[in-house]
Simulated scan of single mutants.
Amino acid sequence: MIESLLRHCTDAEIESNYVDTHGASVVGLAFTELLNFRLPPRLKNIGSIRLYRPDDDPPGWPALGGSLTRSIKWDLIAQQYDQRTQAPHLPGPGRTRPGRAHHLRLRLPASPDLRREIHSGLQVVENWNSANTVIHYGKDGALTGADKEHAETSMLTLHLLQSALVHVNTLLLQQALAEPEWAGRLTAEDRRALTALFWSNINLAVSLGAMRLR
């Protein structure tokens, strides 16, 4: 993922790379932050996230409602504090799971706009995944074959189809944007949302029929 962000071989300036729940890794968030990229995750379990209370007193934040759970076990933290805060160059369990929450994780529950942005970005990718299932037809897009060479050939063929489709879509977008009617209608925000990752223009009946004839 980081390799693709750094070397995407285009003139586009990449600011964010949206990931699903499984992509919200501490290591990924740390490295993309250092490289000046955002890695906003869509947390599937955000509705079940709970906040620990500082003590056993009745909660004084009525707006948080059911988001609060039990109080923090300060005695447990004191008991394990030394082994969790050892020097960075030393191995140990404290180095594998940093305790400081990433700022994007903290912003997600409080920012509906950020959650909508992440969802919209991921919808583009998920729609494109649907295209992969269609153009890589047979066995629901699963790689088949008795050996590694068959699977590799299938994947390379899919990459070729993807590249051809994106190339055709890019030419179609360029042709449409060259017309004065569209040039004056689209705002900067509209242009930012343009993508060549669409496949509604494919005539699947004709395409699959041609493949069978060959």
Rank of each mutant, 00 (worst) to 15 (best):
A12W: 00
S25M: 04
Q79M: 06
P40E: 03
L160D: 08
Q86P: 11
R115I: 06
R95V: 02
P98N: 03
L177E: 15
L90A: 05
R105D: 06
P88E: 03
H103G: 10
H103K: 06
I202V: 15
E189A: 09
P59S: 04
L106G: 00
G92P: 03
G141T: 07
T157R: 03
R214K: 14
S16T: 15
P54E: 00
G60E: 15
Q86A: 10
G145F: 01
L165D: 12
K139H: 15
E33K: 14
D56N: 15
R95W: 02
W182S: 01
R97A: 13
E149S: 09
T133H: 05
M211S: 12
P112E: 03
T144N: 00
V166M: 07
L122E: 04
L156Y: 03
L208T: 06
A110N: 06
G66N: 10
K73V: 09
L39E: 06
Y18V: 05
P41F: 13
A164V: 11
A24E: 13
R70A: 14
E149Q: 08
L197Q: 05
E179A: 07
A101C: 06
A164M: 10
Q79D: 02
A210L: 14
A193M: 15
L34P: 07
R185K: 08
A63V: 11
V26Y: 11
L5C: 07
A164D: 13
N201H: 04
I72F: 03
D55V: 05
Q86Y: 09
L197A: 11
V26M: 14
V134F: 03
Q162S: 08
W182A: 04
R53T: 13
H136M: 02
Y81I: 02
E126C: 12
I14Y: 13
K73C: 14
N201Y: 01
L114D: 15
A196G: 04
W61A: 10
V168L: 15
Q123E: 06
E15L: 10
R185L: 10
L160T: 13
A188M: 11
R97K: 11
G60K: 14
S154M: 07
E15C: 06
R50H: 02
Q162T: 02
H103I: 05
Q174N: 09
L43E: 01
C9T: 14
E117T: 04
R53W: 07
A12D: 14
R191I: 00
L208N: 03
I118Q: 03
L68F: 06
Y18Q: 09
W199L: 09
L158P: 02
L143Y: 05
D55S: 09
E15V: 12
N132R: 07
I77G: 03
C9K: 15
L213F: 13
W128A: 04
T157F: 13
L6D: 08
N36A: 07
D20I: 07
T170S: 01
L186K: 12
I49L: 13
